[in-house]
Design a protein around this nucleic acid. Structure first.
Lengths: 104, 104
DNA sequence: ATAATATGCAGGTAAATGCCTGCATGTCAA
DNA sequence: TTGACATGCAGGCATTTACCTGCATATTAT
């Protein structure tokens, strides 16, 4: 997993919207995903390219259409490496913080 | 939570390193965190500023030193909003993908 | 075959990012 | 009080990002 690519891909509201839309309906075409996006198709294409580069989305060509599918693997890996670890010590980290903010 | 700020903050290797270091030893000063970072102190300060803006790190001034503490809340919120959702449908999403890659 | 449809590719621009240097301020210790 | 130490602030520069327009290619339907 390339954490840089994954986090960078997630660090844009348009791309998160695209993921949410695919979550609602997996396998949409580029055209479908562009609707109501309020930007040129070419811009959305670039966003989808970044999601693909990060492996968050995989595509399949069907005729003249390009279908987009969520790949849940990188998000799972982010969870394993970056989230679970902090969740595990979450309460003790909160305790550190609270104690210090109260002034020692 | 400002998902944009949180993901952007996480989308840089230096900042992830800083978080890892704080995870190892919470409450370090700016000076301690800069050691072995291979960049000017001012650059590291900017990175820490971004982590603070995203609320991933909180700071307390003690004399001439500035102590840094991990704030686990935003990561927890990212988990709730962006990870758990996809984890929940993880296997069915993987199934969609596999089926399509195999060609229908 | 031809027109309509779906996507790809090339380049251009304004703004954001990540790094730097130089200097200012504030705090502690001798 | 004075020098050393820890951090803050301002500006400059190269690269990346996110958007655009214009044109090219490939597929389907008539």
């Amino acid at each position: 997993m390339d954490a840089d690519k994954v986090f960078k891909a997630l660090a844009d509201p348009t791309r998160r919207t695209l993921l949410d839309r695919l979550y609602e309906k997996n396998g949409q075409t580029l055209g479908q995903l562009c609707e109501d996006l309020d930007m040129a198709r070419q811009s959305a294409t670039q966003h989808l390219g970044i999601l693909e580069e990060a492996n968050l989305v995989s595509t399949v060509r069907r005729g003249r259409e390009k279908l987009h599918f969520i790949n849940p693997v990188p998000i799972h890996e982010v969870y394993e490496r970056w989230v679970r670890k902090f969740e595990h010590r979450r309460l003790s980290l909160l305790h550190d913080l609270k104690k210090e903010l109260e002034g020692e």
